[in-house]
Write a protein that binds this DNA or RNA. Structure first.
Length: 666
RNA sequence: GCUGGCGUAGCUCAACAGGUAGAGCAGCCGAUUUGUAAUCGGCAGGUUGCGGGUUCAAGUCCCAUCGCCAGCUCCA
């Protein structure tokens, strides 16, 4: 407890034997004796409330019902409807889980079990992994403990007492945690045959719990460090009502349908082969989207003053020694020996760009120089971390390096943020988490340089007024950065955009420009990407659109569907007109019934189907079926083409009066 | 990399406790000429990821290896 905090408490608490003042949500003030329990206060307000109570919240802090109240402040009873109830349920359910595991597997040691989004996890050292059958048994035992309705008791104790308890029950992991906690602030929670070290708070009895499902178990290193032994983590989902739990499980199920790996296969966008692990092949349709993303960025490069360059793939190791990569990044690189010379495949573009910059002479008037490069990069990633398109071993980025005078970094970062905004809004990426990554342990460059870089970045991001979080240790090895993260369908965050400040590379490559004073100065490099890895961006885009790409990106934009072979010729005529207008169009001349052709077009997520039969041929029109089922009769083909071209030119997400993509924030 | 799970036809899946691999869709051929999410019939398709082993017999059991999936960790 800080000294300020304890001072406040002394003032507000009025001391032993005095009174404290509780301000209820309706504004009334209740005076109760110091040390009255939350349960007693709830009971004095109403028996129903006391019955529903899970805990109380006093002065912003959630407390057990049994805790004596020792300060004045805003007082609320935490009932199931209260915003903090879920957290309480989740954490208490974690204890419930450990209780059940201890009963069923007496030798199992317990680790930690916090509440997390949607539920909880609990780490155990079981000696062997849990099987799905184990999880079922554990779940059943948990239900039994709920039925027993055991009272949950908070026990404050000394470290010595706690160590004694956990040594006695054979829990060395708990003993280890106790050792790290300062004396005087230690508490345990006991429910009948189970006691666990915990700060609390918890629900008053196990009978309050019950809406949960153990979802899966997986290995997890003790304290998240791979040098530590691996424990078994059980994950559980916990909600207020069975309905919400069911909905959550259904949502997870639905999210699987938008998994980019599944859709990529179904829609024929990309594939993988065991001989090129974690390295995607893009099929024609996937390559179309990929190239359109690049074309999009190229357009904006003109607007934002970037120049595209093309640089080598493989360099003498000398380059990576100079850049520091052989030291800090070696384990992620591919090397080869040719002609008794060591070469490395580039994992990043920056070293090559430095060589290019160094080859010229620059005055302050030439800066900033913004070099963009879509070159393919290769990074060795450990086998367990690769995943679909979101984490691969070869990819290209909308990468660029800005060589700028130190005083113009702020301006450049702000321009970048505008650029990024324009791109993300095109895709309607709304839930973007921004984080400022500060110096990691493993890094190059002196601390004074890091100080400067971190200050400049934070100032720029503050100037935009956007919310952001600071992540110490999350910076690149060569400098601090601002990362932009977007979630995939299953809610896992992925970094897309980034801007990284680098004062080190210009030193290492001895880069300079001539300033107004006629003297050589050191430029600063800003590494930046907006889409980030195009592979990853593609994957995220698939998941956000569910495979329904916006019209301008759809690999096949229009499909002509003749009602029968009799109208193939008319269909071909329409097709030629569409292709002539620059649209990606095909025709379905298979010997199939109309219904089957429509079904196919829908399954392949073609945004526009143009049905042509007797009526259309006679009128010289087409019948438009917009993806999703809307049907519009007798469209004038020229007007339709105009509309489509406009949607492409404006890169609009909706091209025909209605949403074609369902953007989920799950 | 670590822990666990999985790997059968192009795709989705089946095959009792080991008994010698089967279906739908897709593909090919034929018939049908179709009006807004699946026309009918036929044919073809697999050294069960790869390599060992146990067994009279292995998709099934064991070992090893590759790949994929979940998580840990790491990162764009």
């Amino acid at each position: 407890m800080s000294s300020v905090e304890s001072a406040n408490r002394t003032e507000a608490g009025a001391g032993e034997g005095g009174k404290i003042r509780l301000t209820l949500p309706d504004g009334t003030v209740k005076e109760v004796p110091f040390g009255t329990t939350g349960r007693a206060v709830a009971a004095s307000i109403g028996p129903r409330l006391a019955k529903d109570a899970l805990g109380v919240k006093l002065a912003g802090q959630v407390l057990d019902l049994s805790r004596p109240l020792t300060e004045s402040g805003l007082f609320e009873v935490v009932t199931p409807k209260h915003a903090d109830a879920l957290e309480l349920y989740r954490h208490s359910t974690a204890h419930l889980c450990a209780n059940a595991v201890k009963r069923l597997f007496p030798g199992v040691k317990i680790g930690i079990g916090p509440a997390i989004e949607n539920g909880f996890y609990y780490d155990f050292d079981p000696g062997r992994p849990f099987t799905p059958e184990d999880l079922e048994k554990i779940g059943a035992e948990m239900k039994k403990i709920v039925a027993e309705d055991n009272v949950v008791v908070r026990k404050e104790m000394s470290k010595a007492e706690a160590v004694k308890i956990f040594e006695a029950q054979g829990d060395p992991l708990k003993v280890e945690i106790v050792a790290g906690i300062p004396e005087g602030s230690l508490s345990c929670y006991e429910q009948k045959d189970f006691i666990d070290l915990c700060r609390g708070p918890h629900v008053p009895s196990t009978g309050k719990l019950g809406v949960f499902k153990l979802t899966h178990s997986a290995g997890a290193y003790w304290k998240g460090d791979e040098r530590n032994p691996m424990l078994q983590r059980i994950y559980g989902a916990v909600f207020l009502t069975q309905k919400e739990l069911d909905e959550h499980l259904a949502r997870l199920e639905a999210a699987k349908a938008r998994d980019h790996r599944k859709l990529g296969k179904e829609l024929g966008l990309f594939l993988f082969h065991p001989w090129a692990p974690a390295s995607p092949f893009f099929l024609p349709k996937g390559a179309t989207v990929y190239n359109l993303l690049i074309a999009f960025m190229r357009d904006l490069y003109v607007k934002y003053g970037y120049q595209e360059i093309i640089t080598p793939q493989i360099f003498d190791e000398e380059l990576f020694r100079t850049s520091g990569h052989t030291g800090a990044y070696r384990e992620n690189m591919y090397f080869m020996t040719i002609d008794e010379r060591e070469f490395g495949v580039k994992p990043m573009n920056c070293p090559g760009h430095c060589l290019l910059f160094k080859s010229g002479h620059y005055s302050h008037r030439d800066l900033p120089v913004r070099y963009a490069d879509f070159a393919r990069l290769h990074r060795y990633e450990k086998s367990g971390v690769t995943q679909g398109l979101t984490r691969v071993r070869t990819f290209s980025q909308d990468d660029a390096h800005i060589f700028a005078a130190p005083e113009s970094i702020g301006r450049e970062v702000l321009d970048f943020l505008l650029f990024l905004d324009e791109v993300y809004s095109t895709f309607e990426f709304r839930d973007v988490d921004i984080s400022l990554g500060l110096r990691p342990e493993k890094r190059v460059g002196p601390d004074e340089v890091w100080d400067r870089a971190e200050t400049v970045l934070e100032a720029a991001i503050k100037a935009t007024g956007r919310p952001y979080v600071v992540s110490p240790g999350d910076g690149a090895f060569y400098g601090p950065k601002i990362d932009f993260r977007v979630n995939d369908a299953l809610g896992r965050p992925w970094q897309l955009g980034t801007i990284q400040c680098d004062f080190n590379l210009p030193e290492l490559f001895d880069l300079h420009y001539v300033a107004e004073d006629g003297v050589k100065h050191r430029p600063v490099i800003l590494h930046r990407a907006i889409l980030g890895s195009l592979e990853r961006f593609f994957g995220i885009l698939i998941e956000h659109t569910g495979g329904d790409f916006p019209f301008w990106l759809a690999p096949e934009q229009v499909r002509v569907v003749p009602v029968s072979e009799k109208f193939n010729e008319y269909g071909e005529k329409i097709l030629r007109r569409l292709i002539g207008a620059g649209l990606r169009a095909t025709i379905d001349v298979r010997n199939e019934k109309l219904g089957a052709k429509i079904r196919n077009g829908e399954l392949e997520k073609v945004p526009a189907l143009l049905i042509v039969g007797k009526n259309e041929q006679e009128a010289g029109t087409v019948s438009l079926r917009v993806r999703g089922g809307d049907e519009y009769k007798d469209k004038d083909i020229e007007r339709l083409i105009e509309r489509m071209k406009e949607a492409v030119a404006q890169r609009s997400l909706r091209w025909y009066q209605r949403a074609t993509g369902s953007f989920s924030t799950l």
